[in-house]
Design a protein around this nucleic acid. Structure first.
Lengths: 129, 129
DNA sequence: CATAACCTTTACCCTTAGGGTAAAGTCAAA
DNA sequence: TTTGACTTTACCCTAAGGGTAAAGGTTATG
């Protein structure tokens, strides 16, 4: 049984995050000692590891929860997992594309700006329109 | 003098946003009518337009404020504007790169998943480690 | 054994950029 | 005049925690 700081250290999560996950129901409440401290059994440590991985992979906590449920469900079909992954792929792609558009126009504008001590500035001008 | 809904319509901002910008000091408080309604003179409408443009260009409100100040400062140097734009370019590029990494690994994983009715799933397996 | 250094708890406020809603007052048109 | 549209302030909500305080528990050292 690990204390919360030990759990944080081995999973790479912060103490705040672990408590937060409990609060929003992403993990269950761990057993408490007589001192009221949280003590995490191995099964919960494994869950926390899993959450860390999915979070690092770009999933939000709601999606992490779905994946965790699938992870622990032996009746799952890999199709269900794949659907979630594909949705995230599309979301990521859309975000990247959108940011790339912004980046390109900002680059174009910036290239036109002399960047000197004068007030005249194509970047500002573009925003005034 | 435009009412807040007229200001919102012509600038493409929401009423909530306009009030919010006032609250955080991004714009000044507009004059009020006897009815206590906000009425926006043309100069403020131009500011709101400018804010809409910079926001659409990917800047956050703090940066919008900096740009607005530069916009209204006739002593500005275009170099100052260019620095802000270049910082945003780097920030956007970093975010895109990071998301691209996530996207690539998620794509690789998803390609390996059969997406059938069986429980075996390389995506889940990757997250368990 | 005492005390310092560290750990844990709950609770509260903070972040971004507003959205949603309520209650109350105001304006304009039929 | 009444109805519908508009405005006001005020409050709670979002995601994912970070920071801090106050209080109490634990451990290591002298």
């Amino acid at each position: 049984m690990l204390s919360i700081s030990q759990a944080a250290k081995t999973t790479g999560l912060s103490i705040k995050s672990i408590r937060h996950y409990e609060q929003i129901g992403l993990i269950q409440s761990p057993p408490r000692g007589e001192n009221d401290y949280r003590y995490y059994p191995e099964a919960m440590i494994r869950q926390l590891h899993f959450i860390k991985s999915t979070k690092d992979a770009g999933f939000n906590l709601k999606e992490c929860k779905e994946l965790l449920l699938l992870c622990e469900n032996k009746e799952r079909s890999s199709a269900d997992v794949k659907i979630i992954a594909q949705q995230k792929i599309e979301e990521l792609q859309a975000r990247i594309d959108q940011q790339q558009v912004l980046l390109n126009s900002l680059k174009a504008l910036t290239k036109q700006c002399h960047g000197n001590s004068k007030a005249e500035c194509p970047i500002i001008d573009a925003f005034i329109k």
